[in-house]
């Protein structure tokens, strides 16, 4: 069998699996008819749209299939960080004592998807806002800047996010 054809088929199957998981989560039932319908339509949609969801050049296995149990740990860490940062932001809002700066830094993540998740996490954490993401270069608006040095700012803002994302997607 041709390599490209094999790759097309596996891309379609991966897309279909994602769609089936989403369908089961949304319907919330395990009745036979519902799952049967879900599988048929997932494969139908996957054959039409696999080339949009998964690009031809994306060949790293870890890129497409994340390690699921780490995602839950990551969600817990993210929510804890959001709460800590929100409570830190309370005096800044009430007193108005802010020192906003733009900082630039780079990320070591190689997968596109992981980079987008990192940028999203930085935006979600109160006090930091991603302005631009160009390949591995991030531009971040920091509400209470402690330093403008690229390396230290990156370490303070990225925190544990990067090392945990590396375990999920590389």
């Amino acid at each position: 069998m041709d390599v490209l054809l094999k790759w097309k088929i596996s891309r379609a199957i991966i897309t279909a699996v994602y769609l089936i998981v989403g369908w089961i989560l949304f319907t919330g039932t395990f009745s036979l008819f519902s799952i049967f319908l879900g599988i048929i339509f997932s494969f139908f949609i996957a054959t039409l749209t696999y080339s949009i969801f998964i690009e031809k050049q994306e060949v790293a296995r870890r890129d497409l299939i994340p390690r699921v149990y780490f995602i839950f740990i990551y969600l817990v860490i993210l929510i804890c960080k959001i709460y800590i940062a929100s409570f830190k932001m309370v005096p800044a809002v009430i007193v108005g004592n802010i020192n906003p700066r733009i900082v630039h830094f780079r990320t070591r993540l190689s997968s596109k998807f992981a980079r987008v998740i990192l940028a999203n996490s930085i935006t979600l954490t109160p006090g930091t806002l991603t302005l631009d993401l160009d390949e591995d270069h991030l531009v971040v608006h920091w509400l209470d800047a402690k330093t403008t040095h690229s390396h230290y700012a990156g370490r303070l803002i990225k925190g544990h996010f990067e090392s945990w994302l590396k375990r999920i997607w590389v």
């Binding site: 940062a85 932001m89 809002v93 802010i98 935006t123 806002l129 302005l131 608006h141």
Partner: peptide, 23 residues
């Protein structure tokens, strides 16, 4: 909402509105 009214420019206002809404 207090942050949106108090902060000086668009970026800081965005910080206040979106982040506190998230939390």
């Amino acid at each position: 909402n207090v942050g949106v009214l108090k902060f000086p420019d668009i970026y800081t206002r965005l910080q206040a509105s979106s982040k506190c809404a998230v939390t």
